[in-house]
Design a protein around this nucleic acid. Sequence first.
DNA 1: ACCATGAGCCGCCAAC
DNA 2: CGGTTGGCGGCTCATG
Length: 325
Amino acid sequence: MTKKPRFPPKPPRTVALVLFPRFQLLDAAGPIAAFEIAARFAPDAYKLRIAATAPGLVAASAGVAMPAEALSGLTRARVDTLIAVGGMGTADALQDRALIAALKRAPARVRRVASVCSGAFLLAAAGLLDGKRATTHWRQAQRLQTLFPLVRVEPDRIHIQDGKIWTSAGITAGIDLALAMIADDLGADIATQVAREMVVYAQRPGGQAQHSALLDLGGGERFAALNAWMRDHLAEDLSVEALAERAAMSARNFARAYAAETGVTPAKAVERLRVEAARAALGNGAAIQDAATRVGFGDSERMRRAFIRFYGAPPAALRRTLRRA
DNA sequence: ACCATGAGCCGCCAAC
DNA sequence: CGGTTGGCGGCTCATG
């Protein structure tokens, strides 16, 4: 992420996307938009190209040149970056032997191979992820691991690079993936300009937790009410013991049930809620100390450490970038 | 940068 | 008998 700029990259880098019937449109739209905008900031940096088995869908996806060609032709062409996107079509695509074979050959001809969301299953099926660290949509992480035991699946990551293989989490993580690649190619400053153009806050570091607790109201019916209550009472005692009492369960059982239901342990959930609320407060211009007490971090030092864990940056830095809006 | 302490988490087992 | 509950002890890691 902190590479020196080395441009102009002399022939334009061809970014190819692999799409299938019923692919996830946003998986593809994120990288397309990011690379298109990057090409605007650094003229001739990228050329987009899209291969698909469903021309109709591709035509709908973006206003870029898109000769729908067979995948085998795609790898024969000079491609710099190959991105496999996910979606409902992944299951069918896994049965497509020509496609998998083409993907298998890709690393030899392509500078980097990437996936968004369940696109990771395609790379895994082609053996490209064996022994490598990789991620996918959090809901699919377990399945990926059981299906492909050799893959070192790391759930709850936005994106991971291992050698020339990049994988990313669900849907919008494709934007983060593309931004990370652009930063790698053209430098962090260009990537930041692209991010601003796309109206995303900042480039999320790859290690960040995948889904927002604030959005994750569901998290299982069972604790929805408790979660809602927690959000409104962040400043109070939200220890496991206190929460267990509120849920009328023993601490042990509550912790177990909560983790089973939501996929997150109680303390982690509380910390995530607090961190997100604090970030929102800072976005509204709150003072750091104020935000810390309001969301239930006793002191600002504790909040600072939590921020670094979650966002990779202390509150002050985040506050600075947030206020530039 | 380090360390002592405690909260939280989890495996295990017994009780229901 | 299988499943759920809750208590104990050890391990990990955040905290101050």
